[in-house]
Amino acid sequence: MTFFDHLLGGIASGSVIALMAIALVLVWRSTRVVNFAQVGQAMFTTFLALAVYRGTGNWLISLIAAILAGAILGLIVHFLVMRPVRRQDGSGAIIATFGVLIALQASASMIWGVDPQAYPPIVDIIGFEAFGRTWPFSRYDVLVLGVTVLLVLLLSVVFTRTSLGLRMRASAFNPTVARLSGVRVSQMLALGWALAGSIGAIAGVLIAPTFSVTPYSFDILLILAFTVAVIGGLDSLVGAVAFGIGTGLVLSLVSGYSDSGNASIVALVLLALNLLLKPEGVFAHHHSRSV
């Protein structure tokens, strides 16, 4: 394996990290909460999608099921947990997301058990053959990267080119002024949670074939996505994508040259360095929040 091979191998996992980080960014932007339950939601919807796949034998239907379930689960968490908690106390909301994570993992263990399960990939996960060797980049990696790019483009268009995006950005930045401008802020917040749930669900289904699915196997993704979102500035979709893919590459190098167990340690070191050197995030807006 060459240096280039390791980099190539990191693109797809980086894309999935980026998607999960985008989900965190969307929730942060709409409600100023870091949703630690996001990967729990993704794990849960991946199990649901797996059940749908086993029932129908159709990968695409299972993906659509995951997207819908992700949106619904996002709304459930938002309305049943976050809204009541936030009314009491803002910081309690973040702790509540941990509660949701634990509840989701416990429920998944009860429903589907803790034994590893395989989620079959839709296309070939073995690397391309060219120039007389196998490259660490497969059709599946192309699919993952393609879906990520497509989603990021779609979100960018919605946020910058539609009045819906304008209203979502306004609600996130200053709910009072947004309301005075006729924006139904509560609707925009709920939409942020639903959208984040769907994107997390897509990330879950995409990454599932690369490891065995258990109620706890997504935990590493939480650490990585959280690191990426914070380094990117929590507000920035561009930051989430850039650092998501960047982290994928770095981790692939770390795993390649040392041990895959070191990946999460490296991620946490990156996070610590970032918080020491540039706590507001690399891509954060530097505008003050006062009006």
Binding site: R169, A170, N174, V177, L180, H287, S288, V291
Partner: peptide, 8 residues
């Protein structure tokens, strides 16, 4: 004041 969104 003005109440404008600085990032828009």
């Amino acid at each position: 004041g003005v109440g404008l969104f600085p990032s828009m």
